[in-house]
Write a protein that binds this DNA or RNA. Sequence first.
DNA 1: TCGATAGTTCAATCAATCTTGAACAAATGG
DNA 2: CCATTTGTTCAAGATTGATTGAACTATCGA
Lengths: 125, 125
Amino acid sequence: MSRTPHHPTRDQIELPMVLDCLSDPIRLAIVYQLAQQERVSSELRCSDFSALSGKSNLAYHFAKLRECGLMQTRIAGTNRFMRLRREDLEARFPGLLDAVIKSAAKDADRLPLVSGCDLIEVDRK
Amino acid sequence: MSRTPHHPTRDQIELPMVLDCLSDPIRLAIVYQLAQQERVSSELRCSDFSALSGKSNLAYHFAKLRECGLMQTRIAGTNRFMRLRREDLEARFPGLLDAVIKSAAKDADRLPLVSGCDLIEVDRK
DNA sequence: TCGATAGTTCAATCAATCTTGAACAAATGG
DNA sequence: CCATTTGTTCAAGATTGATTGAACTATCGA
């Protein structure tokens, strides 16, 4: 098993892959939840997303989000801490991530997985 | 055969469907080409996209673009005129379509189907 | 060292997607 | 009225995608 999961460089981030990644309701909810939590902390653990799906299915979606350059994973002990690659995405596709997140927020009532995200409270550490 | 193809109402446009539609290279190129041509005319015919794929495959992608609310089709004789539903999309997801189109423009050299679009000249009518 | 915890990887299944070509429908123009 | 043009629809195939549970790896705490 690789010690550190593979991440594309900023330059390797591709638009169709990013859009495809964001088009899945579970992955959109993951990104949205990360974005919502950013004002508190820039990172969340895998288990913070357990409301969205089962462990192995989440691992599958996390891998997709990493491979397309939307997310970065930092390993710390048995935990994986995820954060959005905001700067890289803004450099590659200015305004895109914000527009998607705002659109998801606007439509939260239609996106059940997204609307559940706001309720999560982070009070650890 | 239905006289007028089905189009969702503005309110029925869904974010995941829009993102998924835009994640396909051929559909992204169609949208990009429509956007580029907008300063000349807001409409293009199906055959204007023949460089992107074969007829039946294009019809498949046109249907997808219509069903997700990105495009509108107007029938005139044997021609179908397509245009972007800019106002509806802006109302539903402000800034999203522009961000995608600008991202595609920025990456045109990496998106072969997109980069070919700028060359098309409209001198009919 | 021994469990318990946190995630990943694998294999299998099921569904969705893209692509192609052939057949079809509708309007145009001679 | 017939051939042409324009575009859709259908059926088939190949590919990709999502989901599940079981097995696995690695780390931490007692």
